[in-house]
């Protein structure tokens, strides 16, 4: 099933995120990724939700979200000309014998090493889902100790 990215503009009030996630749980939709944060307007927050589903499911999700009083606007960024990014931290096993090789991969993906341990490195990657999956694949062979993703955020290109 196709993944959709919904940018949901909401009132910045306590409990709003619960209302949104409760709706997903109650109607049986699954959130693939979720990112919440402030916007240029302090009274408004932006929830970026990735959800898998066909057009009918996405239509229902959108309509049900609109029924929440504190939801102001929903944009489906899936087919829009949009920029999406996610930030990931990956802790990977890295003894001296493989360090050089890992550094090379990091360079290729324009990622950064943000911490060096005795037997491990922490790598910071920013990019779209494809890039993140690609670097994850490349590093898997060395042994990923821990990985954490922020969830995707997205924005429409141009003046809109």
């Amino acid at each position: 099933m196709k993944k959709h990215t919904l940018a949901v503009t909401v009132e910045n009030r306590p409990g709003v995120l619960t209302r949104v996630t409760t709706m997903f749980r109650r109607r049986g939709y699954n959130i693939e990724s979720l990112a919440v944060g402030a916007t240029e307007n302090p009274a408004i927050s932006r929830i970026t939700i990735e959800v898998a589903g066909d057009d009918r499911i996405i239509e229902q999700v959108t309509k049900q979200l609109y029924k929440l009083i504190e939801v102001i606007k929903i944009n489906d960024l899936t087919d829009a000309r949009s920029v999406d990014r996610e930030l990931v931290l990956i802790k990977v096993k890295a003894d001296n014998s493989v360090r050089a090789e890992i550094v090379q991969i990091v360079d290729i993906f324009r990622a950064r090493i943000v911490d060096i341990g005795r037997d491990s490195l922490i790598i910071e990657v920013t990019g779209d889902s494809r890039k993140i999956e690609a670097i994850e694949d490349s590093l898997r062979a060395f042994g990923i100790i821990e990985m954490v993703r922020t969830g995707k955020i997205a924005m429409i290109r141009g003046g809109k």
Partner: peptide, 8 residues
């Protein structure tokens, strides 16, 4: 009146 009922 409820758009979410249409096509549910």
């Amino acid at each position: 009146i409820d758009a979410a009922e249409i096509g549910k």
